[in-house]
Design a protein around this nucleic acid. Structure first.
Lengths: 215, 215
DNA sequence: ACAAAAGTGTTCGATATACACCCATGT
DNA sequence: ACATGGGTGTATATCGAACACTTTTGT
């Protein structure tokens, strides 16, 4: 009659200019494939969000990041046992400069997830849809940025998430109009010509957080 | 160590040209005030959505209506007992012609909910925010309509939900452009001049269901 | 010198908004 | 006759979409 409550996370980050998902070695005993989206059992007296944060801390060592509940479900007989199993899925956005690969975790592009079971695949799909909505209509994209970034990086990020090309000039116009970009007196040279570095004006971002924006 | 899993519903309907919420006599034994949002304990082998539908059937006798999961939480010590309590909230849209008052239930306007506890009040607030978003950016409003309706009724409904006035001509233009309105060769006379009756073209509505619309 | 990527404005079409009068009916 | 509410079109502003060249740097 043991009731298992599982909290599972879809953690997104931009790595190598691509949208990637965090996988972790599954600690469950008799589980088939080694890697899956990170998760944990709910501890006594802990909220779902606490458990999600704890999992984030242990799998990527990060806190204070965007976290959002996705869905919650009951699975009639989970893990073979007698009782019911509850499962709550969250999605999280990890800034690029915190997205390091630790031992026992790895990052995967969206097209490299074939090893996931169908349940986890559905959760990831759901999270991707949610992410795209948040990025298109809100300012969630900025939660994935490193502290300093260039406009070409910003645009590549949007293109990677939305999976379509964006017009450079229109994109920059829109971003400027939001007023969240703060130009730094610094440049980064990756390709040929150095690109200007920016930061987000956190105060400005918070004001936009719950408003609808176009893209 | 009993674990209670509660499924709670915020059921919306338009009554008397106002947005109202369904309340039901609470069946819990030692609960203070008599009325709260309808809910149930999860049965064995039942999914959350099944439980929500069952509650809908018993409290308003309706099925096949828009139902959406809102949030899910754990309450450390619920009902005084030892175990944890889980609670899943759903929100539901009931067409106006199915929104009858049964015994042991009642409908309340949003400003008449002062008898609710703070937990339920928060759930309702959350549901109202979600409803407004769905009505502004999707076609959820049409799920609240009776089978036949007039354009003034439709507009009053939007105004009641969004809590602001809309321009009559612009509103009608937008609605026509969606192509979901089917004019009937019938008129209804409530005030002075009779107003034309319409139905929704269900096939058209389904196509718009998951798209973004402006308002 | 040339290739590669950064940066920068304008035009045009579509969509949202503002706005005022006539018509049918009941009293 | 008049008061009430239903019905209709146009002009303007705003926003999104399309589009090409110059500049800086490394090779």
């Amino acid at each position: 009659m043991a009731i298992k409550v599982t909290v599972q996370l879809v953690v997104f980050a931009i790595r190598d200019s691509a949208l990637q998902v965090l996988l972790a070695k599954r600690q469950g005993k008799t589980l088939k494939n080694g890697m899956g989206i990170p998760g944990t059992l709910l501890h006594q007296g802990e909220s779902f969000e606490d458990a999600a944060k704890r999992t984030l801390k242990s799998s990527v060592g990060a806190d204070e990041i965007h976290l959002e509940q996705l869905h919650c479900s009951v699975n009639a007989r989970r893990n073979g046992g007698g009782g019911r199993g509850f499962s709550v899925a969250y999605f999280a956005l990890l800034p690029a400069d915190k997205a390091r690969a630790m031992s026992s975790t790895s990052w995967r592009g969206l097209r490299n997830l074939s090893t996931l079971g169908s349940t986890q695949q559905r959760i990831v799909d759901h999270a991707v849809r949610r992410l795209r909505k948040r990025v298109e209509h809100n300012t969630a994209g900025f939660r994935l940025l490193a502290r300093k970034f260039t406009l070409p990086e910003l645009q590549q990020m949007y293109e990677a998430i939305l999976d379509r090309d964006l017009d450079k000039r229109n994109f920059r116009k829109k971003m400027s109009s939001l007023g969240v970009l703060r130009a730094l007196p610094e440049w980064r040279r990756t390709g040929r010509k150095p690109a200007r570095l920016y930061t987000v004006a956190a105060s400005r971002l918070e004001k936009l957080e719950h408003k609808e924006i176009a893209l």
